[in-house]
Simulated assay, not measured.
Amino acid sequence: MQGIILFAHGARLSQWAEPFERVAQSVRAARPDVVVELAFLEFMSPDLAQCGQGLVEQGCQRVDVLPLFLGAGGHVRKDLPERVEELATRFPEVVWTLRAAAGESDLVVQALAQLALQIVSSPQGDLAA
């Protein structure tokens, strides 16, 4: 069984997580054969360790960790690899793969560019929902 952890920073305000929850729901809808979970670095739960353990308990044998960060700063370059390595040590029977930050993907860069172009092209600068 395959799992994916969508890993976000976290915030004190619960509404902050809504876009990330929508991403998780979209992935679940598109790939019902994959266990999709959302984990947070701080302020929110579950954290990566809790989320990873839950995926192992659900029978996942392969887990990808996708940082939902626009850039690869200290958390993505230092903290996250250490935490994924801790999971790999705790659960060596599972293949753990840390992916590049979402913001490094050309898909995300182009989506943000299209959003900016939509704003500057709109007379009122309104965004389409």
Rank of each mutant, 00 (worst) to 15 (best):
M1Q: 08
M1W: 12
M1A: 09
Q2A: 13
G3K: 08
G3C: 03
L6N: 06
L6C: 12
F7W: 13
A8L: 04
A8M: 01
S14W: 04
Q15W: 03
A17W: 02
P19N: 00
P19K: 00
F20D: 15
V23F: 02
A24G: 12
R28Y: 02
A29S: 15
A29V: 11
A30I: 01
D33W: 02
D33M: 11
V34D: 00
V34P: 01
E37N: 09
L38N: 10
L38A: 08
A39R: 11
L41W: 15
E42A: 08
E42S: 08
E42C: 04
F43S: 03
L48N: 07
L48T: 06
A49M: 13
Q50T: 10
Q50M: 15
C51K: 13
G52P: 09
G52Q: 12
V56R: 11
Q58N: 10
C60Q: 08
R62F: 13
D64C: 14
D64M: 14
V65N: 01
P67K: 07
P67I: 07
F69N: 06
L70F: 07
A72W: 06
G73V: 02
V76H: 02
V76P: 01
K78E: 11
K78I: 15
L80V: 05
E82W: 13
V84P: 02
E86D: 10
T89F: 05
F91K: 02
F91P: 07
P92F: 12
V94Y: 06
A101R: 05
A101H: 05
E104N: 04
S105I: 02
D106M: 14
D106F: 09
L107K: 04
V109R: 03
V109P: 06
Q110Y: 10
Q110M: 11
Q110F: 06
L112W: 00
Q114G: 05
L115G: 01
L115I: 10
I119P: 12
V120S: 09
S122K: 10
P123W: 08
P123M: 06
L127C: 08
L127E: 00
A128D: 07
A129K: 08
A129S: 09
A129M: 13
